[in-house]
Computed example of a mutant assay.
Amino acid sequence: MKRRLLKYSFGLLILGFLLIQIYPVIWVFIASLKPSVELSINAFSLPKKLTFDNFVQVINDGKILGYMWNSLKITTISLVLILFLSATVGFAIAKFQVKYNPKLYSFFTFGIMVPVQITLIPLFIFYSNTGILNTSFAMVLPQVGFALPLSVMMFVNFYNFIPNELIEAGVMDGCSTYRIFGQIIFPLAKNTVITISSMYSILIWNDFIFANTFISESAAKTVTMGLKDYVGAFGNVNWGATYAAIAISILPPLLIYFSLNKWVTAGMTAGATKG
């Protein structure tokens, strides 16, 4: 009886956390289907009339699609660089017998402790002096830099569980280091690659702090910056269009997470047990 009560209590607790997490997302989609008049009267009531006018207005405006393209471009370039650099560096640290590898690993892991906020002013001055403000490169560089410490750590932890005999067999078969990495080792890291990709694709897509600091021109805005366009004169907000734009902008990360959730879970637990 006591065990059953504990089980039900734990289930209710998990359900409570789930409702807290999912309620804002559901509410945004419901609000995006309500006429602006209803939102101004009672934003939290169920819609009396469903309408897609808010989505039509946002899509016809065309700005949100351009902002989403900028976010997609920055996210894709950043992910490619993060995966390439962290996978190769992690392999070198884990499998190359070099004297300074532990110190190099400590250098990368130290980056996890560096707050993003303290780098904004130095980066802004550097970008301003080099003339790369309002460019995709200004967004890609810090995204890659701050993602590398954790990504390198995840790859190193995975590579440490790959037996050295596998590499030795490749060497005996005449494989070069590049071929061993590209054809033998890297394909085994599929779960780690998917975990890093899904995690940082969502973080980069939702980034606001770098975009707000380094981007000011409308043509270079990302989707998080573009949502501010729906705040008009004197702080007036077109809430219907705003919620529709938010609903459109959160669809890509939601689709990525739920489609890759199985591999993300496996990648997070990879290396926890051996064998």
Results as ranks from 00 to 15, higher is better:
residue 34 K to L: 07
residue 57 Q to L: 10
residue 75 T to Y: 08
residue 10 F to N: 08
residue 30 I to W: 04
residue 37 V to N: 09
residue 17 F to W: 12
residue 38 E to P: 00
residue 16 G to M: 06
residue 82 I to P: 02
residue 63 K to V: 14
residue 80 V to M: 11
residue 101 N to W: 05
residue 1 M to Y: 13
residue 86 S to H: 03
residue 52 F to W: 13
residue 11 G to C: 11
residue 77 I to S: 06
residue 110 F to R: 00
residue 78 S to N: 06
residue 24 P to S: 02
residue 59 I to M: 07
residue 60 N to P: 00
residue 9 S to L: 15
residue 22 I to C: 09
residue 79 L to Q: 08
residue 42 N to L: 10
residue 19 L to Y: 12
residue 21 Q to K: 11
residue 6 L to V: 09
residue 58 V to F: 07
residue 70 N to Y: 11
residue 6 L to T: 09
residue 7 K to W: 11
residue 32 S to C: 06
residue 5 L to H: 11
residue 93 I to Y: 03
residue 74 I to D: 02
residue 48 K to V: 05
residue 52 F to D: 08
residue 103 K to F: 15
residue 15 L to Q: 05
residue 103 K to E: 13
residue 81 L to H: 02
residue 97 Q to P: 03
residue 35 P to K: 04
residue 74 I to K: 00
residue 15 L to E: 00
residue 13 L to N: 01
residue 14 I to K: 04
residue 30 I to Q: 03
residue 58 V to W: 04
residue 31 A to G: 04
residue 24 P to E: 00
residue 17 F to I: 12
residue 101 N to V: 03
residue 85 L to I: 15
residue 77 I to N: 03
residue 2 K to Y: 15
residue 45 S to Q: 12
residue 41 I to F: 10
residue 37 V to T: 13
residue 97 Q to R: 15
residue 52 F to K: 05
residue 94 A to C: 06
residue 63 K to E: 15
residue 53 D to R: 08
residue 77 I to L: 14
residue 2 K to W: 14
residue 91 F to A: 07
residue 51 T to P: 01
residue 40 S to G: 10
residue 65 L to D: 11
residue 61 D to V: 00
residue 18 L to W: 11
residue 55 F to C: 03
residue 31 A to C: 11
residue 73 K to L: 15
residue 91 F to P: 02
residue 48 K to S: 14
residue 17 F to K: 04
residue 3 R to Y: 14
residue 33 L to C: 12
residue 99 K to H: 07
residue 35 P to F: 03
residue 79 L to E: 08
residue 49 K to R: 10
residue 54 N to W: 07
residue 89 V to T: 14
residue 50 L to F: 14
residue 100 Y to V: 08
residue 19 L to P: 05
residue 26 I to S: 03
residue 43 A to P: 07
residue 85 L to S: 13
residue 71 S to P: 04
residue 21 Q to V: 12
residue 6 L to A: 14
residue 47 P to T: 11
residue 86 S to K: 04
residue 45 S to F: 03
residue 79 L to N: 07
residue 78 S to M: 05
residue 24 P to M: 02
residue 108 F to W: 08
residue 107 F to T: 10
residue 80 V to D: 01
